[in-house]
């Protein structure tokens, strides 16, 4: 019985590892620092077909990009230093063949007649300001964890359970602060 249990565990971990590798290939996350602000460029590839299909069929989509800056702590859970959640929404208008793109963070709205533009509006987040370098301690190590939440409709939530567990992991990027980089050099 113990052997079967261990075998099943190994199988689970193998699947998890395979899935993790596949996910790694279907996403892209970059971090850059400009004028003391850490920006993040992130893009997902494996959601494009789904988003395109939904938008073409006339359903609204709302996405949230969540960036968490965490400080590494040995022997304990890592501490969240900053967290930012950026939302975007696309509402199709099929009869006029237009897609309304709304930035939920800024409130800016504009239309597009190209569904691919609307799709990229949702699956890409360029130059997202995450945190100011000044609040980070040079002596500590940080990383950014990104998650993407996709909701059909304009509601932007599927309940607390989906909000906790429904995120798509976009990966973890190590933060190298400018002074740390100099020190390393």
């Amino acid at each position: 019985m113990l052997r079967v249990f261990i075998y099943l565990l190994c199988l689970c971990f193998t699947f998890t590892q395979l899935e993790a590798n596949e996910n790694q290939m279907n996403k892209e996350t970059h971090v850059h620092i400009e004028d003391g602000v850490i920006y993040c460029d992130v893009q997902t590839f494996n959601q494009e077909a789904y988003v395109l299909n939904v938008l073409a069929s006339g359903s609204s989509l709302t996405v949230f990009w969540q960036f968490d800056v965490l400080r590494k702590r040995p022997f304990w859970l890592d501490k969240s230093v900053a967290s930012i959640r950026l939302g975007r929404q696309v509402i199709p208008d099929l009869v006029t063949k237009r897609w309304l793109m709304r930035d939920l963070s800024s409130g800016v709205v504009h239309y597009t007649r190209n569904v691919h533009v609307a799709m990229r509006f949702l699956t890409e987040m360029q130059h997202a300001a995450v945190v100011d370098v000044s609040i980070l301690d040079e002596q500590e190590k940080y990383y950014i964890e990104t998650q993407l939440y996709i909701y059909e409709g304009e509601q932007g939530s599927k309940g607390w359970l989906a909000d906790i567990f429904g995120g798509v992991d976009m990966g973890v990027v190590e933060l190298v602060l400018p002074t740390q980089g100099l020190k390393d050099e």
């Binding site: 299909n53 939904v54 069929s57 006339g58 359903s59 199709p92 208008d93 099929l94 009869v95």
Partner: peptide
């Protein structure tokens, strides 16, 4: 009528999806 068609279409596609 057009909006009704659109709504039905959206609903149908959503269900189909």
């Amino acid at each position: 009528s057009a909006r009704s068609i659109e709504a039905d279409y959206k609903s149908y596609r959503e269900l189909e999806r």
